[in-house]
């Protein structure tokens, strides 16, 4: 499996990234390198290995349903690029 220029443009579009031609070529090569490395890993025999979805061998990390303090609204909006009263203000989306 290899990644084409079309895939790069598609993925960039999904991630809302605008890439120029130079960058497209660069990422096409880099992502293919990553995939080739995964291919290498695929050579390993994993017949006796349980599939996992998490890197650590832990499970059931839970918290109890107890209310904690939320942030002050001024702190919430401190890093907002733009605000309208106590709302985040964003470009309108249809």
């Amino acid at each position: 499996m290899s990644i084409t220029k079309k895939d790069i443009i598609h993925v960039a579009d999904l991630a809302r990234l605008g890439l120029n031609d130079e960058e497209t070529i660069k990422y096409e090569k880099e992502l293919n390198d990553v995939l080739n490395f995964m291919e290498k890993l695929n050579e390993l025999n994993t017949d006796d290995v349980e599939p996992t979805s998490h890197v650590l061998d832990i499970h059931n990390v839970f918290r109890s349903d107890v209310v904690e303090d939320s942030l002050d609204v001024e702190d919430v909006l401190a890093n907002a690029p733009d605000r309208d009263e106590d709302y985040f203000k964003v470009p309108s989306i249809l």
Binding site: V67, D69, S70, V73, V76
Partner: peptide, 16 residues
């Protein structure tokens, strides 16, 4: 997270 789920509330006050 521990933010409350109460309906309503002033905007952006139930966030962390």
């Amino acid at each position: 997270c521990g933010c409350k789920t109460t309906f309503g509330g002033d905007p952006n006050t139930h966030v962390c």
